[in-house]
Write a protein that binds this DNA or RNA. Structure first.
Lengths: 223, 223
DNA sequence: CCTACCGATCGGTAGG
DNA sequence: CCTACCGATCGGTAGG
């Protein structure tokens, strides 16, 4: 079976000959990914302080000290997970917007973004959740760098809202920043209560969009 | 000055003679309160795992071991703080609703509740914030008991929303639980971003109520 | 309410 | 990537 050289799937293949760009002697990048996956799951569930390097190591099938062959510190592991968490959601929203129907109006774009953000938060899962759950308890130095990454994603939303504002789709007595914080609030708060058996993230996104943009109150009847 | 027996304010007075209901020989309840105040502040800022008994003790001017004269464990201190955090907000909302204008409609009641909740969260401060910030990282046994206390507060909001529903004030295609989670989301998420220099909690409450019930989109013009 | 201390666990390192 | 270990810190206790 091994003679044909095709026995491994593309997912797990390793270079059989040293490649000029990725030398085969180097430690497999897979291990690094396994560490990050385990760390993301644990950080999401237990928080920053309660996640020990021994927990991460044993979940990856190695000993605590060995983690330092791949990362310089616990902080570096956590920061890597959280940055990826932000970028995963950001990329998911960007991708959903790129696939939107032509000539969609600014409000439709926001609905697409809301649904994509919620979907990524609950399906991609651990990385994005770890970012939101651990942000407050991470050392200040990391927090400051994370803020810059978050700010890029905030800018995406400000742009979406501003396009709706410019197009005249938003009510004049609604504050744009309050609206953005409100959107982040309803979306990210789902991490506190939404369980696997509950409503689907996509349906929830549609409902939240409807409430925040059309309002929960019954519209006044035309008379 | 001490001869008149009136030198202490009512806030800090102690029983000068043993009272049948609260014997004077007992340790002062003030100390217990000071411990809880310090714990609430630290739990809010640093989270459950990163708040040590030594931190709480030194903030109260005592040694770590002495805390066990007032509480049985770190868990008991945290649980006490968090239960009070829920009850403080709940009481603030109840009080605000009790003082509402006569014949206010159900939507006005909800706006009052939103503003009271936000006000309590950011002015009463540490206890309520500690509850929200630490809930996920507290031992399961405590979490289960806290859920029951939270459930009482949830019931208050379900009642408010249900009254609006029954009165026909809410749109038929809005889900009541989604609306409640949305309200909690926008309100509690303010802990993640609202800083002392920012908008006043009351103004923010009015804005959030406006967005969630009237909608951020410009209403269709009547033609 | 303090001193002195317990066993457990933490992030991290040396040497291989 | 492991073994063996470091100093620091943790929640909690004994005895006063």
């Amino acid at each position: 079976m091994r003679a044909d050289g095709q026995h491994k799937s593309a997912m797990t293949r390793r270079a059989s000959r040293p490649s000029p760009v990725a030398p085969a002697k180097a430690p497999p990048d897979d291990t690094r990914r396994q560490i990050l996956n385990a760390a993301a799951k644990l950080l999401r569930r237990n928080g920053y302080a309660s996640t020990s390097l021994r927990d991460i190591a044993s979940a990856t099938g190695m000993k605590a000290g060995s983690l330092y062959y791949h990362f310089a510190s616990k902080e570096e592991i956590a920061e890597t997970v959280m940055v990826e968490g932000i970028d995963l959601v950001r990329a998911a929203v960007k991708k959903a917007l790129a696939a939107r129907p032509k000539h969609s109006d600014p409000l439709e774009d926001i609905e697409i973004a809301v649904r994509a953000h919620l979907h990524a938060l609950h399906e991609s899962g651990d990385y994005a959740s770890a970012n939101i759950r651990c942000f407050n308890h991470v050392p200040d130095e990391i927090k400051q760098r994370l803020r810059k990454v978050r700010e890029r994603y905030n800018a995406d939303w400000r742009k979406l809202i501003n396009q709706a504002r410019t197009a005249g789709c938003l009510d004049t007595d609604v504050d744009d920043e309050a609206l953005r914080y409100g959107l982040f609030g309803v979306m990210n708060w789902t991490l506190e209560w939404l369980r696997p058996g509950g409503p689907l993230p996509d349906d929830l996104g549609a409902m939240f969009f409807r409430i925040l943009f059309r309002g929960a109150a019954r519209p006044p009847t035309r008379d």
